[in-house]
Amino acid sequence: ADAQAQLAAAAAMPAPAAAPEPVAPQAAGISASERQISAALIAAQQTADAIVAEAQQNADHICSEADAKAREVIRQALQEKQEELKEIDRLKASREDFKAEYLKLLQHFMDDAQNSFPSDLMVSSTPVGSAAAVPVASPVAAAPAAPEPAPVADPFAPLDNFGVDDLD
Score class of each variant (00 low, 15 high):
83 E>V: 03
109 F>I: 01
80 E>P: 03
146 A>L: 09
88 I>W: 01
60 D>R: 06
40 A>E: 09
26 Q>D: 15
158 P>C: 10
95 R>D: 00
1 A>S: 12
18 A>V: 04
74 I>Y: 06
94 S>D: 03
9 A>Q: 12
146 A>V: 10
155 P>M: 05
48 A>N: 13
147 P>G: 01
166 D>H: 04
55 A>P: 02
106 L>T: 00
32 A>F: 13
12 A>C: 01
154 D>E: 08
13 M>F: 05
54 E>H: 10
82 Q>M: 11
128 V>A: 11
43 A>N: 13
58 N>W: 04
80 E>S: 13
5 A>S: 05
164 V>F: 03
11 A>N: 08
47 T>P: 04
43 A>I: 12
119 S>Y: 06
110 M>S: 14
137 A>G: 06
74 I>C: 04
131 A>M: 12
86 K>G: 01
73 V>Q: 05
8 A>D: 13
83 E>D: 10
160 D>P: 14
167 L>S: 02
11 A>L: 08
108 H>N: 12
156 F>H: 06
76 Q>L: 13
89 D>Q: 09
29 G>E: 15
1 A>R: 06
115 N>V: 02
107 Q>F: 02
7 L>F: 07
35 R>W: 13
33 S>D: 15
65 E>S: 11
75 R>A: 14
94 S>Q: 04
23 V>H: 09
99 K>Y: 00
144 P>L: 05
24 A>M: 13
17 A>L: 11
88 I>S: 02
50 A>R: 15
50 A>H: 14
64 S>Y: 07
113 A>E: 10
128 V>F: 13
98 F>A: 02
117 F>L: 11
97 D>K: 01
57 Q>V: 07
88 I>P: 01
8 A>V: 03
94 S>P: 00
5 A>Q: 04
68 A>K: 13
144 P>I: 02
8 A>C: 05
120 D>Y: 05
31 S>A: 14
68 A>H: 11
139 P>L: 01
95 R>H: 00
163 G>Q: 05
146 A>C: 01
34 E>G: 13
8 A>S: 09
138 S>D: 14
77 A>I: 03
46 Q>P: 04
2 D>F: 05
